[in-house]
Design a binder for these strands. Sequence first.
DNA 1: CTTGGGTCCTGTGCGC
DNA 2: TGCGCACAGGACCCAA
Length: 292
Amino acid sequence: MEPPLPELPEVETVRRGLAPVMEGRLIAQADVRRPDLRWPLPEGMAARLTGQRVLRLRRRSKYILADLSSGETLIVHLGMSGRMLISVPDGVRAAPGIFFHTHPAPEKHDHVVLDMEDGTRITFNDARRFGAMDLVATAECDSHKMLAGLGPEPLGNAFSESYLVARLKDRATPIKSALLDQRTVAGLGNIYVCETLFRAGISPTRAAGRIAAARVAGLVPIIRKVLTEAIEAGGSSLRDYRQAGGELGYFQHAFRVYGREGGACTTPGCDGTVQRLVQSGRSSFYCARCQR
DNA sequence: CTTGGGTCCTGTGCGC
DNA sequence: TGCGCACAGGACCCAA
């Protein structure tokens, strides 16, 4: 089974995994092995990263933001298949209880390599090259093209019930599309939208503006819970992965509908079957019996 | 303004 | 055994 694609919880898990080896540390050497990801990497990126200290690792939506001592911020998007591998010159360097592999031979899709001052190496690997990186002044980060139009963070205070009700009022677009739209709420992808709508008992095809306000409001705590649970699962896998060697970006998580076409609905008392339908080119998984 | 569809990328898995 | 193809899908871009 293909591991889940990086949405907000996966990105947050990667951020948490990288933080202890990057925050406060100097990038001794940055190397770009392939400059054409989703877009061309910024001009002179390797030189602009080399010698900089990572002040802080933040996350906005599905983006990881590394604030540097130069006053610039490295923006990273994992795309579909992006992952981060942490390795060390030798296993004894790892902190107590944490094990990372020794530096492996470069692989085909290793596009960016960061060697930290203490010898820890972070390798960005992205087979499908939907990932992206950019480097901008920290002060202008929020107005960057990739971040400017984003809606509120789903786990933040701005994502309120009244906000969502107002945002979806009179919208003709299917609720599935509305929640996938990063301007509505930032960080949800196909998997967690499917899981959210299943828990809410709302059909993915229903027009957003035709859902009772109380049910729309109910989506807010459900979205928070779905994401929080996934982040917690990511935390568990992080501990496992560290034991296993430091590959970040993927973890096992049990989904109730996503990828379960033909499977039994897990709602107590429901004898429905999980269906799959395609909405604007994307698969929606849902139970037609308990999602209305 | 809203909405929908095309495009990019490559590894995986299926049918024949 | 090998080939062709559908599929995965986030985010930009453009057309209606």
